[in-house]
C-alpha cells in the first residue's frame, strides 16, 4: 500500500513547508547567511573595526597556504583526530562490547558513571585537569614523586600536549560515544552471538566478525561525530590552558581560525582558514551520508 511511510496527498501540500518554516528562518539567519558572509569576508583584508574593507582577492588563501605554520597546524589537526578516535572510538567500542557480553553485574552503575562527565562543562574540566595534571605541584606529580618519577612538562612538549588535551576533551566525550555504541551493540540479535559462542568462536573474533559489521552504521556515525565535534570541543581546553602554544604546538585548524579572528583581528585570514576547514569537513560529510543514511535504508 503505502510504501514509503508518508501521508501522500494528491494536491500540493503546504503543510510540510509550514512546519519547516521556523527551522528555515533560524538556519538561514544564523547558519547559511553567515556561511556565505564568511566566504565573502575571506577575500578582504579587515580588522573588524575600521569602516573600510580592502579587497585582496585570493591573497588570504595564498597567505594561508604558503605559511609553514599552516602545515604544522594541519598536521596537528590530523594528530588530534587520530588520538581522539583512538580514545573515543576504539576504546568505547571495546568497552561497549565488554559491557554487553562479558560483564554481568553493575551494568547500570557503569553506564551512569561513565556518561556523567558529559553533563559537566568542559571549562570546569579544563581547569580541574590543569591543576590535577600539574607536572610540578599537582596531586599526580606528588604521587609520582613517591616512585621517583618526574612527570614531563606536557604543556610545553610538542606532541604530548596534544595527547593530554585530547585526553581532557575525551573525559567529556567518551561517555556519549560509549552509550551510543552500547546501544547499537545491545541491539544485535542474541541468537547470532549465542550461536557463535556455542560454536566456540573466541570473543575477539565475535567482535571483529559479527559486532563490528552489524553495528557499523553506529560506528561510522560516532567516527564522524568524534572528528567534527571533537575538534570543536578541544577548542575549550586549548583556550583555557595553552592558547595554542607553545609555538602552535597545540593549535589546530579550528583554534587557529578563532585566534586569527578574535585575537589577532585578521578577519580575512580567519575567514579563509574557516572555509578551508569547512572543505575538509565537507568531505567527511559525504562519507557519512553515504554510509549512515544508506545503512538506515538497508535496515528497513
Amino acid at each position: 500500500m503505502n510504501k514509503n511511510n508518508t501521508l501522500h496527498l494528491n494536491k500540493i501540500n503546504m503543510k510540510p513547508w509550514l512546519f519547516l518554516t521556523p527551522v528555515f528562518i533560524m538556519f538561514s539567519l544564523f547558519v547559511f547567511w553567515p556561511l556565505l558572509y564568511t566566504f565573502y569576508l575571506s577575500f578582504f583584508d579587515w580588522n573588524m573595526v575600521s569602516p573600510t574593507k580592502t579587497f585582496v582577492g585570493i591573497d588570504n588563501y595564498i597567505s594561508v597556504l604558503t605559511n609553514p605554520t599552516t602545515y604544522k597546524i594541519f598536521l596537528n589537526t590530523l594528530f588530534f583526530i587520530g588520538i581522539l578516535l583512538l580514545i573515543n572510538l576504539v576504546v568505547p567500542y571495546i568497552f561497549a562490547f565488554v559491557l554487553h557480553l562479558i560483564l554481568n553485574r553493575l551494568k547500570g552503575f557503569y553506564k551512569t558513571a561513565i556518561f556523567l562527565p558529559a553533563f559537566i562543562s568542559l571549562v570546569v574540566g579544563s581547569i580541574l585537569f590543569t591543576w590535577i595534571l600539574n607536572p610540578i605541584s599537582g596531586p599526580i606529580a606528588e604521587i609520582a614523586g613517591w616512585f621517583g618519577i618526574q612527570l614531563p612538562i606536557w604543556s610545553q612538549t610538542e606532541g604530548l600536549v596534544i595527547v593530554v588535551i585530547s585526553l581532557i576533551t575525551s573525559w567529556k566525550v567518551f561517555g556519549y560515544n560509549f552509550i551510543m555504541l552500547y546501544a547499537s551493540i545491545s541491539g544485535i540479535s542474541e541468537e547470532i552471538i549465542e550461536a557463535a559462542r556455542l560454536d566456540g568462536v573466541p570473543l575477539h573474533r565475535i567482535f571483529l566478525d559479527i559486532i563490528l559489521p552489524v553495528s557499523s552504521s553506529a560506528g561510522v556515525y560516532i567516527l564522524i561525530m568524534t572528528i567534527v565535534q571533537g575538534l570543536q570541543f578541544v577548542y575549550t581546553p586549548i583556550s583555557v590552558i595553552t592558547q595554542g602554544g607553545p609555538n602552535y604546538a597545540s593549535s589546530n585548524l579550528i583554534y587557529q581560525s578563532y585566534n586569527e579572528g578574535f585575537i589577532l583581528y585578521r578577519t580575512g585570514h580567519s575567514a579563509a582558514l574557516s572555509i578551508m576547514t569547512l572543505l575538509v569537513f565537507a568531505i567527511l560529510l559525504l562519507i557519512e551520508f553515504k554510509f549512515v543514511e544508506r545503512g538506515v535504508h538497508y535496515e528497513n
Binding site: 590543569t130 591543576w131 600539574n134 607536572p135 610540578i136 605541584s137 612538562i153 604543556s155 610545553q156 590552558i241 595553552t242 602554544g245
Partner: peptide, 9 residues
C-alpha cells in the same frame, strides 16, 4: 612551563 602552573609551583 606556563605562568599559571609555574607560579603555582
Amino acid at each position: 612551563i606556563g605562568s599559571d602552573e609555574g607560579t603555582q609551583a
